[in-house]
Each structure stands twice: as C-alpha cells, then as structure tokens.
Design a protein around this nucleic acid. Structure first.
Length: 759
DNA sequence: GCGCTTTGATTTTTT
DNA sequence: ATCAAAGCGC
C-alpha cells in the first residue's frame, strides 16, 4: 500500500508526503503536482500512519477543489473517508458556528449574507447614521469594513485603529451595520471567519474540542489566505502542531480580498521548527511556455526566488496575435480554435477537442464578444461565472423567502420580498417599519409582530401606519409563519421534503404566478426557478429543517467555479482569477493590453502592478501545450460606444521574443468592410498594419452560396437537429437563425457553421 | 401605493 | 449604453 501511494512521486514530492510530524510548508510552483501531493499525503496519513479521517481537516480555496480531493481519495481509499473535513475556510467555519455559535449569541438558524446582501445592509446602515451615499460609496465603506474584519478588527478594535476622517465615517456605519446583523441573526462572509476566531478565543473548552480532534490540518492555496483564516488555522492546530500549508507566492492574486502573503513569512516565524519543501519540477507545460512564464515573473521585485524546470520538450511557440478590435480578436480566437480542432497548422501534430481549450480574460465583460463570436461560428462554449446563477433576481427572491422561513429575523431578505409580488406594502410603509424596528431594537419581523399585538389590544404604535398597511403587514407575517409551521410539521411524518417546501413557498407567496404572468422574461425566469428547485433535490433524504439549512448554506457559499463541468465538446470562457488551479492543453489570454491587463485600476500602484503580473503568470502557466496571447488594436472603453486605441500590455515585453511567433494573419473576411465603414478616419494611420497582415488570397465564402429557406430541417455537427427560423445575407456571408432541438436558438454564419440540410 | 418618466451613476478580480 | 434611484401624476 505504501508503495502504491508513493509510486510515481519524485523525491521532493515523496518527502512532502512522508513528512507527517510537525509543521510543514510546501512551496509548490505551477504544475508541480501540488494537488497530487496534497491528496497522496492525506492518503498516506490514513493508510500508512493509521490516522482516522475524522482527525484530518483539509481546507481548500473552492468547494470544487474540496470535492475533487474527496473524489480522488474515495477512489484511492474507498468510502470510509466520509468523516474527513474538507471544504473552504468559509464552509468549515459556517459548520462550526452552526454547531457552537450559540455560545457567542449566534442563532442556530443564522443567515449568511453574501456580497449583495451586505451592500443592502450597508446602505440601510448609512441611511440610519446619516452618511450620504453620494459622498461615500457604499462599496468603499463595505470594503473598508471587510478589510477591518479580515484583520481581526471588530468595532472596538477598529475604533482604536482608525486614523482618517474616512475611518470615522466607516466606524459609524460599522457600528450600526453590526447591530443590524445581530438583530437579523445574520453573519456576513467575513463574520464566518471572524466569529469562529472569537469563538475559539473566548471559549477555550470549545476550541479544545476541535484542537484535540484535528490531529492534522492542511491548507491549500495558502498564499491567498487572510489574517483571520491563518489565525483560525493556528488556533486549531495548537494541540498537535501538525499544520501543513501549501502555496505559491507567485500565484498570490487575491490581495484585494485581503489575502495577506505575509502569512507565509508569519508561518515560518510562528513555527520556527517548520520544514520547508520546494517543488520546482513542472510536469504540465512545454519548455517554451515555462520559459515565458519564468521570464515574466522574474520581472517582479517582490518575490521569493524559485527555479522552475521541466523535462518536457520545447513544444510550439507562443502565438501573439492582434485583432483590429474586440470583435476581431474574438474572431481570431475562434478561427485558431477551429484550426486546432481540425488539426491544421505548421506545428500542430494532433487534433484538439473543444474541451481542451480555455479562453481567459481579466474582466467578465470581455466574455461578451467571445460569446457572440461562439454563437456566430457555432462553437459550443461554457462561461464560468459572469451571469451568476445565484445572483439572478428570481433566484435571490425565492432564496429570500426560504431564508425567511428558516429565520424570520433576516431583515435583508424581508425587505427584499415583503412587497414581491405587490401586497400594498410600499416604500412608505417599509420606511416606517424600519423606524419602528430601530426604536424597539428588534428585527423588522419582530416589529410587525408587536404591531399586530398592539393592534389586538388597541394600543399604541399601530397609529403610525395606515389601516390597510397594518393589515398587509400582518398578512405577510401570517404567510411566513404559516410556511415556517408547515416546514416544522413536515419533518414529522415527512410526506413532503425540501422540494415540497419550495413548491409550497412558490404557491402560497404568489411568487409563481407573479413570475409566470410576467410577459417579457417570465418563461426564462420560471426556468431558472425550476433549475434552482432541482438543485434542492439531492437533499431530500434529509429532514426538511436540516435540508433547508444545508441548502441555504450552499446557496450562499457556492462559487461559480464549483459548478464547472468538464465538457469535452465545449470551450471554457473564464476569468484569470477563476482559472487558477486548472489546466488546459490550449490557453488563450485575450486583452493583452495596457488598461485591461494590467487593469487601469492597478496602474497607480507598483504592488498592484506586480499582482497583475502574477495574474498573467497564472494564466500562462495554465497552458500545457499551446499558448495564445491576443490583443485588440482598439477597444471599446466603457459604455460610450466609442473605441480607443490601445497599447500592448507591458507583460508582453517581459516575454523574450525568441519564444514568440507573430504569425502573418490572413484578414478575416469582414475586415475590409469593417474598416471602411466603422473607422474610416484611422485608415491611413493603420495602412502599415494592413499591408503587413494582408493575406495572399482573399478568403472565399465556400459553402455560403447555398442559402437555406425558412423551415428547412438541418443538422449541425455539434448542435444536432434544428429548423431554420430565418436566413439573411450578412456581408459576403449568410446568417441563419436556427432553432435546435436540444440547444435552443443559435445565430450561425453559414460559411463557418457546418450546416447540412436533411431530407 | 404604484407606475411612468427623468436623472444620475456606473469601470476588476470573488469566498 | 444600461440600469438603478428619484420625482411626479394618478
């Protein structure tokens, strides 16, 4: 068994796996088999050292990483690893707080507030302490509070630490914000960590329980942890001191989320006996890609030296390509992908499937041009994040109802849905209710409750509301109470489960009808609700109460990357941040321009510029075989429609030209017309570039001549059967809208999309 | 209280 | 350009 676990590990990796006593720091360069080492180390602990999985905690950066680790371990060791604690810091702390939170006054059914919930509550806090949102952006205030919390500063601590006038303002909001959170029985993202820390700090007997339990504690992506996370880890590994952290300073890209790279230094001071193992052999990328990455990152001054090497071959050159604008950049991406897919090109030795390809970018907005190009040319794709399923209005609304059922004191959720669908509870009434809650220092729901009671007795406060408003509020209270009672009684004889509860909520609240009656996007939104409902299905084995808690926690803590699936026949569109930890045979980075990468917001600050460079490094090192660095000559900046010339990213000049191949690029067929029509004024300035890239032969629209008629039944290589809805000339081409049986409507350019008429 | 029109602000990355 | 908040008439 030992052999099986240690097989195929290099000496360093092996040493990392076998070092099980005492603190350990593993510095793991990209592609150095880090995931494997972490997994094998756990397997080794369990199988060889006989440690019970129950005594091991492994903290990862995303739930997805945790799930994968669990999966691999199950394959290796079988199902008995169920007791292993594996998850993100946030989910780990959420679990602890769910169990122990009552010690620090946190209700068992506490709500978890995500970013947009936080913003809602910050806005309300600002209003209540008279801070003008026009003078102080709620986002900025929130980020100040979040940053404070990430450094272990609660309100009292912040009061002492604050320096500026802005800090004074923030303090006022912070105080109120905390009161509101507490009244709502809610914790925000930062609280999950912070409250866990305070819990362990103030209640040593609770801390001891966990300290004794976790004989081994591992943290992956340690360079992206913040001060609180590290503190919690230290607290928990106090008894056994078997803390193993794995990270790469060169891949630290979350300082804006208060991640503190100094944790790595602190670790070595806090655990002077710590062993340090550096993994430098790269198994992922070609020599060329690795050399490029190494040259790039060497430009950074703030760095721990590390020498990556590989036994892999030289491989293909890196392709740098410039499109005229964002659309053409996307078009070039698609065309390169199609070529790779067909196995064409000078040094292309195999056919790449679409699943082999990732297209990465700095900001989500860049996905749009790419998506449009994919639709036009019939390339199936999946976007990670961006649209954010859980952030859609209808999903958040339904979640808010469910949260209210679990915890009626949740003010943010109440304010969100109290008048959706319309119940005659307008702004005026909500304002008055907020005031009432504030005066009596309770949640809004409790305020309605006392309103109802004083109305029965004919006393006091109800006079502040119109008769109808009071009635409407009481109606809402009864609605939520009724649902909560149902949820409770369900757990008894369980004829109904969580899905049943969701249906009940949809019907009773009138939300179902509300959405379905909506003319514009009603159907789409209903489908989203269905999808949301489906995700509850794998929790039906639990009692309704537990299922609801688990479900809501999941909804709050999932990340977009968690739902990424490996689709062999679709390319992946993903941000540079989210792509960390993944690898693909072919990687495109688009927007290699000043202002995009590095982003404008980082250009003032040298430290931020180095982080942007690390981001670029992360992108490059995702590639196993082929790397494409794309840029647009002009890019639309913001919303005003006009595009502005851009400068190539400084990071391009960090890569020695010997690794780069700047191919002569035949013009896209739309190029000539596009330039003539959309940018006549710059034609002369661009003349040199035009000739340099001019193709010898104008691309002929091959299949485009055979236009389809509306109603034709067609077949597409990837989308399958469909019917032509419309077909019109588009430049030298034809653009058809086809309704596919299984993939919905797509717009396709006939010369690119292989459409075949059937019958 | 609701819905329509106008005005104003928005531009990073995300557990 | 797009979307949210604010203003205004019903």
């Amino acid at each position: 068994m030992t052999d099986e676990i240690l097989a195929e590990l290099n000496p360093k990796q092996r040493e990392a796996v076998e070092t099980v006593d005492g603190p350990l720091l593993i510095v793991a360069g990209p592609g150095s088999g880090k995931t494997r080492v972490v997994t094998q180390r756990i397997a080794y602990l369990i199988r060889v050292c006989g440690v019970s999985p129950y005594r091991i905690a492994a903290v990862t950066f995303t739930n997805r990483a945790a799930r994968e680790m669990r999966h691999r371990l199950t394959q290796l060791l079988g199902p008995n690893i169920r007791d292993l604690s594996a998850g993100t810091f946030h989910s780990f702390c959420a679990m602890v707080l769910r169990r122990e939170g009552e010690a620090i006054g946190l209700d068992r059914s506490y709500a978890i507030y995500d970013n947009s919930d936080q913003i809602d509550l910050i806005k309300r806090s600002m209003k209540e302490v008279d801070v003008d949102p026009k003078s102080f952006a709620p986002r900025a205030v929130l980020s100040a509070i979040s940053s404070a919390k990430s450094k272990l500063l609660d309100v009292a601590g912040f009061r002492l630490a604050g320096e500026s006038y802005f800090d004074e303002i923030v303090l006022r909001v912070y105080e109120r914000y905390e009161e509101l959170l507490s009244q709502s029985s809610a914790a925000d993202f930062d609280d999950l960590l912070l409250k866990a820390h305070f819990l362990f700090d103030k209640f040593p007997e609770i801390a001891k329980k966990y300290q004794d339990r976790y004989v081994h504690f591992m943290i992956d992506e340690f360079q992206d942890t913040n001060v609180v996370q590290y503190s919690v880890a230290k607290q928990l590994s106090q008894t056994h001191r078997n803390l193993c952290v794995v990270g790469d300073p060169d891949q630290s890209i979350y300082s804006w989320r208060n991640a503190d790279i100094r944790n790595i230094l602190s670790f070595q001071t806090d655990f002077p006996e710590a062993k340090v193992i550096v993994l430098e052999e790269n198994y992922r990328s070609t020599q060329t890609i690795l050399d490029a990455a190494t040259s790039l990152i060497a430009t950074n001054t703030q760095r721990v030296e590390k020498e990556l090497w590989t036994q892999n071959g030289k491989g293909a050159s890196i392709v740098v390509r410039e499109g005229y604008n964002e659309e053409e950049e996307a078009q070039f991406v698609i065309r390169d992908i199609q070529r790779l897919n067909r196995g064409e090109g000078d040094d292309v030795t195999r056919r790449y499937s679409l699943g082999d390809v990732a297209v990465t970018y700095r900001v989500n907005a860049q996905s749009r041009a790419l998506e449009e190009a994919c639709l036009r040319y019939g390339i199936p794709y999946q976007v990670v994040g961006g649209l954010k399923f859980y952030h859609r209005q209808e999903v958040k609304d339904l979640a808010a109802y469910l949260r209210l059922v679990a915890n009626p004191d949740d003010d943010v959720s109440l304010a969100r849905v109290v008048n959706v669908p319309l119940r005659g509870i307008g702004q005026r009434t909500v304002d008055e209710l907020t005031r009432l809650a504030r005066d009596s220092e309770t949640s809004m729901f409790a305020a309605i409750e006392s309103l109802a009671q004083s109305k029965e007795k004919g006393t006091g406060v109800s006079g502040r509301f119109a008769q109808r408003s009071t009635q409407a509020l009481i109606g809402f209270r009864d609605l939520i109470k009724g649902l909560a009672n149902q949820a409770e009684s369900m757990s008894e004889d369980t004829p109904v489960d969580l899905v049943g509860l969701i249906d009940l909520v949809l019907n009773r609240t009138g939300y179902k009808r509300h959405v379905m009656e909506e003319s514009e996007r009603g159907e789409e939104r209903w489908e989203n609700i269905q999808e949301f409902r489906n995700t509850a299905e794998d929790l039906v084995h639990l009692g309704v109460h537990d299922a609801l808690t688990e479900f809501l926690e999941r909804v709050s803590l999932v990340s977009d990357i968690d739902s990424l699936e490996e689709k062999p026949d679709a390319i992946t569109l993903i941000t540079l941040h989210q792509v960390k930890g993944l690898e693909f045979p072919v990687v495109f980075i688009v927007g290699m321009e000043e202002g995009i990468l590095p982003h404008t917001r980082s250009m003032e600050d040298p430290a931020a510029l180095e982080e942007e460079r690390r981001l670029c490094y992360v992108g490059i090192t995702r590639a196993k075989e082929r790397l494409y660095l794309m840029r647009a000559f002009r890019r639309r900046v913001g919303f005003r429609g006009g595009s502005e010339p851009s400068t190539p990213s400084r990071y391009l000049t960090d890569i020695p030209s010997e690794f780069i191949l700047t191919e002569r690029e035949p013009p896209a067929r739309t190029r000539a017309t596009k330039w003539a029509s959309s940018a006549p004024r710059i034609e002369s300035a661009m003349a040199g570039v035009v000739t340099r890239r001019r193709a010898s032969k104008p691309a002929a629209p091959e299949a485009a001549t055979a236009a389809f008629s509306v109603g034709d039944k067609v077949r597409h290589a990837t989308f399958g059967a469909g019917i032509v809805m419309s077909c019109k000339p588009s430049g030298t081409d034809f653009e058809a809208t086809v309704a596919f049986k299984d993939h919905g409507a797509k717009r396709l350019l006939l010369s690119f999309a292989a459409l075949e008429k059937v019958e």
